[in-house]
Design a protein around this nucleic acid. Structure first.
Lengths: 335, 335
DNA sequence: AAATTTTCTGCAATCGATTGCGCGTGAGCG
DNA sequence: CGCTCACGCGCAATCGATTGCAGAAAATTT
């Protein structure tokens, strides 16, 4: 059994049929006789043969692959290690694999405005999933006017052209803050960088919740220059200079919350005894850390499913609206 | 300027030359007259034209893409969110992009032994980078006998057939433990799942360091069923039942170390005052947490560079040996 | 000025599948 | 028994580039 079966022509010869028939049999088309098809398929896997996907791609003008791109805005290298995005990518990988599509990953540093158009022109994938709009919303909007198969994870803002899937960050921020207030917190610190659009919405939500208390609660804002990570030192710095010691912390991500808990512990403050801490995302680590973290759950798997579903609709030419998912308060022990 | 330039034929007509010339001009071959080439290139980007990579791939038998695959062994979903792997993937993305290659990401659940062969047969990429051998070393070895363009991140064991790049986990474990001993620890706890080959080597290293102390130091082993994450509860459980309270912790990953620090803080033990904790990996979080974590540094970017370099050598047909990188002790404040 | 070499360019085959169209065959029908 | 109609299958064109080979034009040599 020499390994000479490289093309459907070889296999056709072996099976005594035409390459066309082999092609149809392997593609599972019902126009070919069931027995013939079966025989061909058997032969194919005896010889470990599977038709060249590249040739197929060329002929069918379909690529069988989706580009997942992470625009890095200004924050080189930070984004990609964000556990939230990574979990999302994992879910996307599952979702796409299930549909028989490959996932082509790119991180791009958007130096010129045509980075996306270049990727489209390269024509290697059937569609794009953009993870986080970064500061590239205009680019996305410009492209979206004529290019359908693209969806972005991230915030939805009125009037945007491109299709996005994301959770309601304003609502999430509000829920988190209301929860702290209900738990009795009167001085709440927000930890996170509001330069990132999503985090700024969470902060807005927090402000909204606080403003509904008629001044009974004050909100301290501890911004930082990194979206995903807030260093322990930074938090220490804020605490040292805070006009008033917070009794509640709303961390804009679970990772930040973890750092906060450590910092507080180092100062002899127990959570939730002395201060309460709520996170955001509900990463798996939120469940396993000590104390288990109260947090705002973003449905990552659900988000991935929506992204993929909308993308495939768009690949078929149907326009789709943006999706705003509802965040959910998950109460554990840290509040 | 109607958008009719879809193929090199269209462009050839516009330029008044043959498609062959267009192809050569765009590929930057020096056989074509410099002026003609320039004219063609100018025309090409006026019309936003770039030749179909799929057609090229078919003709040249090169794919311009590398498969990065994460075998999930038994631990569904856990691996992918491991910050270490994610950082590695980020570096790989940079490295590959720089060489003009796409990165095709797959997570596979190795249910049948032919998962890798199937991927090879699909013929969509020029080579594979396997992230972590999981429990699939035999599969890798079997494939490596006849299939060159593949390298794996992970452990190197005597006699293995496939090419691996990884750091010396035994040495790393030894360094970590010796450091704890030097700091005065006499009861050291290892936190991590030795079912993962890399972690088991770290444990070996720890044992070796301890055995050189003539019984002055004891090693407690706190295994767990998860490689990457160790839940706080589990650690609590170990502490409650430990015959002797450890004064030093060797966590098999930085993430585990973070959890450990939290648990200890919750028990009123300060780090490094009461107990010392050392991590492994030197993720960026190790620098920013409180207290900054002493850890064993794995050179992720360097590892990625080696992986890619070896892979490309192999794509060119040159065999390469495995690479074992030296881990490095990074002393911060947690010990 | 003729001969030779160099420089460009074009022809046509090729990469490996998919698919519209048409033909032959046997079943179903009157 | 002749006619229609599915059903299976094959022919050949096609997807969009790349490249060996050969020939024309220009440059160089003799």
């Amino acid at each position: 059994m020499a390994e000479k079966v490289r093309t459907i022509y070889d296999l056709a010869e072996l099976a005594g049929v035409s390459p066309a028939t082999v092609s149809r049999a392997l593609a599972g088309k019902n126009v070919v006789n069931a027995k013939t098809a079966e025989r061909i398929r058997k032969l194919a896997d005896e010889h470990g043969f599977s038709p060249s996907s590249i040739a197929r791609n060329l002929r069918t003008r379909r690529r069988g692959a989706i580009g997942v791109v992470i625009p890095l805005g200004h924050e080189l290298g930070q984004h990609i290690s964000d556990p939230f995005f990574m979990t999302l990518i994992g879910c996307l990988a599952d979702e796409l694999t299930e549909r028989g599509f490959d996932l082509v990953l790119s991180r791009v540093i958007p130096d010129r405005d045509d980075w996306l158009q270049k990727m489209i022109d390269a024509d290697r994938v059937d569609g794009f999933i953009i993870i986080g709009q970064s500061d590239q919303s205009k680019v996305l909007d410009a492209v979206a006017k004529t290019f359908l198969p693209m969806v972005a994870w991230g915030a939805f803002v009125q009037g945007q052209v491109h299709c996005s899937v994301g959770s309601d960050n304003f609502l999430g921020g509000k829920l988190a803050t209301q929860h702290l207030i209900e738990r009795g917190c009167r001085t709440i610190a927000f930890l996170g960088n509001p330069q990132a659009i999503e985090l700024s919405l969470r902060l807005e939500g927090a402000r909204s919740a606080v403003s509904e208390t008629d001044g009974k609660v004050v909100l301290l804002e501890f911004p930082t220059h990194l979206a995903a990570e807030l260093s322990g030192e930074e938090i220490v710095g804020y605490l040292d200079h805070a006009e008033k010691m917070p009794d509640g912390f709303f961390a804009a991500s679970d990772m930040i919350a973890l750092t906060a808990i450590q910092v507080l512990a180092a100062r002899g403050l127990s959570v939730p005894g002395d201060v309460r801490v709520i996170g955001y995302d509900d990463l798996s680590v939120a469940r396993t850390c000590i104390p288990p973290l109260t947090t705002i759950r973003q449905d990552i798997a659900g988000g991935a499913a929506h992204l993929v579903e909308n993308l495939f609709k768009r690949i078929e030419g149907k326009a789709t609206g943006s999706v705003v998912l509802n965040p959910e308060l998950v109460i554990r022990s840290s509040t």
